[in-house]
Amino acid sequence: MALSEREQQVLRDLEEQLNDEDPSLAETMQHAETALRRPSPRRIGAGAALLLLGLAVVIGGVAAGSSSVVSILLGVLGFALAVWGVTLMLFRPSSKATAAGVGNAKRSSFMERQSERWDRRRDGQN
């Protein structure tokens, strides 16, 4: 759904206000936006390796034509590896929100421990 002209103007005004009030945060947000669009080199490398391995397994299955069952199984396995490699290269993991939640849970328990220590110190001084 496209934004109306008024909504686009409001967004531009908010962006300018953010740049004026906190330029470092605005710069960080811009870098984070471009980083989310950029694919991970590790995922691309792993996906390309799986793709090549899958193609090698398919070729090995064709070359091992002595048994049709083994040939078919190797072909299916190679195809599955190749598809897995391509999906690994093209799609980002959707577990970022879950991982962020786990990180927040660790932080909250850390913060709770720090708060308890602070309370004990404060009670000990009174």
Rank of each mutant, 00 (worst) to 15 (best):
G78K: 00
R38E: 08
V76L: 14
L52D: 07
A56E: 02
R38T: 14
F91L: 14
L18A: 06
E21P: 00
L25W: 03
R121W: 15
F91H: 07
E16L: 11
G45A: 15
L55N: 05
L73T: 04
T98V: 05
A26K: 02
R122E: 14
V83K: 00
P39C: 02
G45F: 13
S95E: 05
Q8L: 04
V102I: 15
D13R: 03
R6Q: 12
A82Y: 01
S68Y: 08
R37L: 12
S95P: 00
G124C: 03
A49K: 01
L52T: 09
V86L: 14
A46Y: 04
L53M: 05
V76W: 00
G85D: 04
T34R: 13
V76F: 02
L25A: 07
S109V: 15
E16I: 03
S40T: 05
D123K: 15
L74M: 13
G75K: 04
A2V: 03
G65D: 10
S24R: 07
R121N: 14
S108N: 12
P23V: 05
K106M: 15
E27H: 12
E7Q: 11
V10G: 03
S109M: 14
L11N: 03
W118M: 15
G61N: 03
D20G: 05
G101V: 06
S67E: 12
I72M: 03
V86Y: 04
F79D: 01
R92G: 13
R43N: 06
S40K: 05
D123T: 09
P41F: 07
A49M: 10
F110I: 11
A105L: 15
V69M: 10
E112T: 15
M111D: 15
F91K: 07
I72T: 02
K96Q: 11
P93F: 09
R38H: 08
V10A: 13
Q114N: 09
S40A: 09
M1H: 11
M111C: 11
A100P: 01
A80E: 07
L55M: 12
E33F: 09
G45W: 08
E16W: 01
G47F: 05
L88K: 11
P93N: 07
S94A: 10
R122P: 05
E27W: 05
F79N: 01
A48R: 02
R43G: 00
E5N: 04
E116R: 10
M89N: 05
L11A: 12
Q17Y: 06
A99N: 08
P93I: 06
